[in-house]
Amino acid sequence: MTFNNKVVWITGASSGIGKSLAITLSQENCKLILSSRRKEALEKVKALCNNPKNITVLPLDLAETNSLKKITEMAISSFGKIDILINNGGISQRSPIIETTIEVDRKLMEVDYLGTVALSKALLPHFVANNYGHYVVVSSLMGKFSSPFRSAYCGAKHALHGFFDALRLEHEADNVKVTMICPGFVNTNVARNALTADGSKQGDQDEMTEKGLPVAVFTKKMLQAIRKEKFEAYIGKKERFGIYLKRISPKLLHKLVLRSKVR
């Protein structure tokens, strides 16, 4: 697969991985739709991109699922079609289970899971009618195995895998592709913006995220996985080997995570 003449819709495009994807993809022969809650931030990202005439800014809030069908219609009308939806928007969480209010769990599910599912379902009839479409879902290694102090985040990311594995099976005959991207630690502001036990932002960076992959390196590897139409891609440093260790010995992975500096 190439990005040539494709229309790519990116959520969470105002910062971090989404911003890096937008800037990198703007160098390809494709058109982009950039979405997040912050229109002003999206306009700044657009200004950093090549060929701004090929870029549409379309604000949305994944928590407002009732608005996503209308926004999807607007996205399609921007360039007449959508070929690839990169579901990158979302939030993280850092807090002990015993202290975390159920409102935080609900917020993570509303944004990271239900918002992503609602947007994808709104676009699905368009993909089926065109007999082509590619969902790219930014999950996490935490969607495959868990880590302390990320219970709500792990739950929402695990749920994404269940849904999109089913979607891939149901729409194989419609030529609808699904690529699950599972980042390890990437040096973005995801930890600073993570919700704590009472729903407030953490505000500071953790050591493992600070030492994670540079976002430009991650973006290059992610785009390679999309081009190859991989089912899943595990992108990170040594933490990605937790995927394989869980298959061999979940108990050993449990012990290693307990001994790690992940907090």
Rank of each mutant, 00 (worst) to 15 (best):
R37L: 07
G212M: 05
T209Q: 12
K246V: 02
H134V: 03
S14K: 06
T2G: 11
H158T: 03
K39Y: 05
L124T: 05
Y113S: 02
L167P: 01
N50V: 11
S14V: 02
T2H: 12
P183C: 13
A225K: 05
R227K: 15
V176K: 06
V178R: 06
L256C: 00
V217P: 06
S77F: 02
K237W: 07
L256D: 03
M109C: 04
I82W: 00
I91S: 07
M180R: 08
A118P: 02
T72I: 04
V8C: 09
G12D: 03
R240F: 07
Q27R: 14
K44G: 13
N187C: 13
A41L: 15
G16K: 08
R227F: 04
Y135L: 10
G143A: 09
R263I: 15
L195P: 07
H254L: 10
R150C: 10
M74W: 12
V104L: 04
K157C: 01
R263F: 13
A47R: 09
I84G: 03
F79P: 08
A122Y: 03
P183E: 13
A156Y: 03
E28W: 05
G242T: 09
G162M: 11
I33V: 11
L124N: 04
F3M: 09
F163C: 04
S26M: 08
A152G: 07
K201F: 12
A122N: 03
I17C: 02
M180H: 09
N88Q: 11
N66I: 06
G80M: 10
G199W: 01
N50R: 13
A22Y: 01
G242P: 10
A122F: 01
L21Q: 12
P59L: 09
K53F: 12
K70A: 14
L32N: 07
K255Q: 11
S15W: 09
S67E: 15
L253M: 00
A118H: 00
T72M: 13
V57M: 08
R259S: 10
S92T: 11
R37A: 05
V7I: 12
D206M: 12
V215C: 04
V104E: 00
N189R: 15
Y132K: 05
N130Y: 11
D204H: 15
S249I: 00
Q205H: 13
K211H: 14
P214N: 12
